[in-house]
């Protein structure tokens, strides 16, 4: 009996994971600019989101060093912060950026995927406060940090 139940449970979990990754894919596909930049949502829930953006030639801001342009980094941060706000348990119906500040600590290493993790650390009836960090392969030294305020549509 027992093994059978476990198998069922696993199947249920796998189905849930497939469902979740489907939602994640659809989330990015629904945002033309984010999919044009090649973003992939790899985790979302409870006011947290992780989005990855693989290195691509058209994102380069400095052709000499191959470093990605700050604008592409801020697009990634903006999308990730918005996703974190949307995924907050109080489930806003929609969101728009009010303001976003980005600190660029160091250039992203050429050729490496950029990973951004955003947390919605506070939410009121009408405003979501979010912060985010972006990394390349060196996970100890963030490339950039962002803080932003987002509208909460109910």
């Amino acid at each position: 009996m027992r093994p059978a139940r476990d198998t069922r449970k696993n199947e249920g979990q796998i189905a849930k994971m497939v469902e979740k990754s489907k939602i994640a894919k659809q989330f990015i596909q629904a945002i033309p600019h984010s999919s044009a930049l090649g973003m992939e949502l790899t985790e979302i829930g409870d006011g947290f989101a992780r989005i990855e953006m693989p290195y691509a030639k058209h994102l380069v801001g400095d052709p000499e060093t191959g470093v990605i342009h700050g604008g592409a980094v801020s697009a990634l941060m903006d999308t990730c912060c918005g996703a974190a706000a949307m995924s907050h348990p109080s489930s806003p119906a929609g969101t728009a950026t009010i303001d976003l500040r980005i600190d660029y600590m160091r250039p992203a290493a050429s050729g490496q995927t950029l990973v951004t993790e955003a947390t919605c650390y506070n939410i009121t009836r009408s405003v979501a406060f979010v912060r985010a960090e972006a990394f390349d392969d060196d996970r100890d030294n963030p490339v950039a940090m962002a803080t932003g305020a987002f509208t909460v549509e109910r």
Partner: peptide
């Protein structure tokens, strides 16, 4: 351009496309 859209329902430009545009203009 269609690829600059962030919210297809409104539709509205993506905040990231706007910030990229502003940063390019500044630099």
């Amino acid at each position: 351009d269609d690829k600059l859209i962030g919210n297809p329902l409104l539709p509205a430009l993506h905040g990231g496309a706007i910030s990229g545009f502003l940063e390019v203009t500044a630099v």
